[in-house]
Design a protein around this nucleic acid. Structure first.
Length: 290
DNA sequence: CCCCAGGCTTTAC
DNA sequence: GTAAAGCCTGGG
């Protein structure tokens, strides 16, 4: 990678297989917002980051080169060669179509705690509403950051949320999910469950551990594993993926369990990448599956 | 007004 | 084991 430090940021020259729109709109994250053409601002852990694709060069603002190698290369998954992944997956003609459409997707390496709560909130909700709830929680209980004179808020830590009543959490408009969030805060902040430890286990054990949380089922567990724990063999199967898989592969109604098994066998430790390309393609071509 | 939105828990076969 | 009902809330 050809990287240069510039005023207030870095630039990666001639970047391959990274596009901000595809990466930030493919459903894996909720705190990146478009501010201009090919420009996004996001709060990641304890920093506000601005990303802009200008031609073939990627500008990342509010970080140094040293920080890039220390944290952000991993967060944006920029050390991974996605062309190899794409080559392997493109053997499948349907994936070829999906990859051609979403070529610039990268799977972000997000914070497990934030990812867990975000996907607990996501159940039975649309994306704008999910983002609103997360924004409310961050503004109310996170820490304030200033970037270019504007206020931003970190996603609250377990400690910052501990002690809140279910009623207080409900003020975020998260509805019946408040009791799930409350339970997760309790179990994580009192040390009953340690997300870093859980992520170090085998995929099966990680999954079991996550599902042991109240309000966390197979779909949410898979999202947390894929988006924040580097478990790339999972295949989060939601209603969109289910519809798409039935339409393209099974030609008949198929259980989620069977779809996951199929994907695992077909794509192995690349199933998570396949899911992201398919999901993004499916969301953008939803009318096909009606 | 009714229906749905990136699921889960509970209850009933 | 698998299948259906009910769930908070906001927007169409």
């Amino acid at each position: 990678m050809n990287i240069e430090e510039i005023n207030k940021g870095i630039v990666i020259k001639n970047i391959q297989n990274f596009h901000p729109i595809h990466t930030f709109e493919c459903g894996q994250c909720f705190r990146w917002n478009k501010t201009d053409d090919n420009t996004y601002i996001g709060v990641v852990r304890d920093k506000v980051i601005e990303v802009e694709l200008r031609g073939v060069d990627l500008y990342i603002y509010n970080i140094s080169q040293e920080e890039f190698y220390h944290r952000w290369q991993d967060y944006f998954d920029l050390a991974r060669d996605y062309s190899i992944i794409q080559e392997k997956l493109k053997i499948d003609p349907i994936l070829k179509r999906a990859i051609d459409y979403g070529r610039g997707i990268r799977i972000l390496n997000q914070d497990p705690w934030e990812t867990l709560i975000s996907f607990i909130i996501s159940s039975n909700k649309n994306i704008p509403h999910i983002k609103k709830i997360i924004e409310y929680l961050s503004r109310s209980y996170g820490s304030m950051l200033i970037y270019k004179g504007k206020e931003y808020y970190t996603f609250p830590t377990p400690k910052q949320l501990s002690g809140l009543s279910i009623e207080e959490i409900s003020k975020s408009k998260c509805g019946y999910r408040a009791k799930f969030i409350h339970a997760a805060v309790e179990r994580v902040s009192n040390g009953d469950i340690n997300l870093d430890y859980i992520s170090s286990l085998s995929s099966h054990q990680t999954r079991e551990g996550l599902i042991s949380l109240y309000g966390v089922g197979p779909k949410i567990a898979d999202c947390v594993m894929l988006f924040s724990m580097g478990k790339y063999e999972v295949f989060p199967t939601d209603v969109w993926i289910k519809r798409l898989m039935e339409y393209f592969y099974f030609k008949k109604p198929t259980s989620i369990k069977e779809i996951r098994k199929f994907a695992n066998k077909k794509w192995g430790n690349l199933a998570g990448f396949a899911q992201q390309y398919l999901f993004y393609y499916g969301r953008s071509h939803g009318e096909i599956f009606k």
